[in-house]
Design a protein around this nucleic acid. Structure first.
Lengths: 336, 336
DNA sequence: CTGAAAGCGCTTACAG
DNA sequence: CTGAAAGCGCTTACAG
């Protein structure tokens, strides 16, 4: 990498002059047009790029900017991640926090490959999103020199922000029970983290304790097509099913195809609710519109940033997980 | 901000010792456990945070990391932005480019507020996404000290990567014409950038030149609900409409509600195509599935990064816009 | 076990 | 119109 000094030598001027020219101060400092052009050309020819570390060290700027690294799973649902980022950004802006956000995706289960020491040490803090169980083990068994916050995961070692998984499982069962439903089903993907098990177990438990049957469980790929296929299978094999919980919003959207093909209308004898993990705008306008358990991702992001801020400034803090409450939004797929 | 020097003074040791301790080298350098604990405590109490600029300047690391600032409109569709980021990331990884990506959102039309001089100068390069016309004027009338690439916008001053707006407008009209359609309609939002006008004009032009009527144009809000309402209005006022082009994917998804309510089935006499700006997975499984003009956002991102790389290294480059071709993907909403 | 000193690449107040 | 020099906060080879 070429430096100002090298350009100076090449141009037979002092580093001062080069710096001035490169910073557009030729006029104000009355550098001759001749010198200016010569230096500019040489800089161009040599491929000069400023060393921003040195610049900001000297200018004493960016001392007020903490780099926060966000590690997120590469195939996370777009809407989910976007809401999370926007939650981060708006909190940073509202509270005038001196944070800058650096993005790095990782393959689920391969967090350790993404968390190179060099990268970690180049940041003031780290937020890990959607860690798989094996990623959590990696985090638990290593010490990083930086504060770390977990998004939507529990850990004894690191603070984290989680959503209320118990309510997420309980509420739909309560709603179905209050509507007199008896034959519940659950359409889900393979559990990617422990919270999903909690949700699933609490749903089953509440169904039983409210006098409904044990929910049928159908597994699906993580995409709308998976939801479509699983729902078609479910209704072919168990047409008596009268209520369905979808563990992900895209599965429920995919299921609309099944209902269209089978000419199932809403309101009708069947109803369903989905965990609104993505918060997709289409869920409000789909036909039928989707009743969702609303997951407040922006709020979660906001808490992540706040936890990070505490960790950066208050070394006496305790390691606690912050639980964010969820909300039920009834719509046409489960009216009333 | 507290520095190593201040800690050293407070602890009555040298900066060297503090640095060693703070970098976990106490053992290897045989610092006494006593000193170590004392320094650590003082650092904690004083709230020490490393100045990463200074660290990496000294270590001569990160000289190989160019900071690229991505400015994106805060309310961009999530799926769109996410595909763009993933395109960036995968290209950076594949080509082993030494880039790190910094995100900053801005309100459409208020780019100048986001592009603070300090922020701009703290980065090696800038990619501006989804600029409004007024944002483009701002860019054209200012000089930045850094290379700048436009995503999906034309400019004489800056290189950019755009999609083939002419084809985007032409293809749907050609498809409709080849299916013998005669009464076209267009459902769109207010044009946010000039490319939208090109698409719209070419669609109208091609409809006419292929012997169809002039398309009816209905304006809609930028959300599924808007698409639903506009489509309902269109079909109420002009039930003879036999083909519709949607300018955005979410408008078409919202329209599915209209078709459901009006019991319009596909295939049937009506057909529609949507510009697949988001590339939503649900569009493949919706009922009917959506015929889309596929916009290759990953490819666009990849070209943006490549243009940036050229600008950073080759100062003799010309300012050119790179045009990325689009593809038509027929599905159930416009079969054949 | 600990410290003085050099130096990373840059900017800028000061001097001429 | 131009340059010598100090110094931003840190790390590390060297010396003791």
């Amino acid at each position: 990498m070429v430096t100002i000094k090298e350009i100076a030598r090449e141009a037979n001027v002092s580093p001062t002059t080069v710096s001035l020219i490169l910073n557009n101060k030729s006029k104000e400092r009355k550098i001759s047009a001749d010198t200016e052009q010569r230096v500019l050309q040489i800089a161009r020819r040599m491929g000069y790029l400023p060393n921003l570390q040195a610049v900001s060290l000297k200018k004493n700027t960016s001392r007020f900017s903490y780099r926060i690294l966000i590690l997120w799973v590469a195939d996370s649902r777009a809407q989910t991640m976007m809401r999370f980022f926007q939650g981060l950004e708006s909190t940073i802006e509202e509270e005038k926090l001196p944070f800058e956000v650096l993005l790095q995706s990782y393959k689920g289960g391969s967090l350790q490959h993404a968390m190179k020491n060099e990268l970690v040490l180049s940041c003031h803090g780290i937020i890990v999103c959607n860690a798989a169980e094996s990623d959590l083990e990696f985090l638990d068994s290593n010490n990083f020199q930086r504060p770390l916050v977990l998004y939507n995961r529990y850990s004894k070692k690191y603070p984290g922000v989680v959503m209320d998984d118990r309510s997420i499982g309980t509420i739909p069962a309560e709603v179905f029970a209050s509507h007199g439903k008896k034959k519940p089903a659950l359409i889900t993907t393979l559990p990617a983290f422990n919270g999903m098990n909690i949700r699933q177990n609490l749903f089953a438990y509440t169904c039983l304790s409210r006098g409904m049957g044990e929910p049928l469980v159908y597994y699906s790929d993580s995409c709308p097509k998976g939801g479509y296929e699983a729902t078609t299978r479910l209704l072919d094999e168990h047409p008596e099913t009268d209520c369905i919980l979808y563990m992900r919003e895209d599965l429920a959207l995919g299921a609309l195809r099944t209902f269209g093909e089978k000419n199932i209308r809403f309101p009708g004898s069947l109803e369903f609710i989905t965990i609104g993990d993505a918060g997709l705008p289409i869920s409000e306008t789909s036909y039928p519109s989707l009743s969702i358990i609303f997951l407040p991702l922006e709020k979660v992001a906001s808490e992540c940033i706040r936890l990070m801020n505490h960790q950066l400034h208050d070394f006496e803090h305790e390691i606690t997980s912050c639980v964010v409450p969820v909300a039920y939004i009834p719509r046409e797929s489960s009216p009333g």
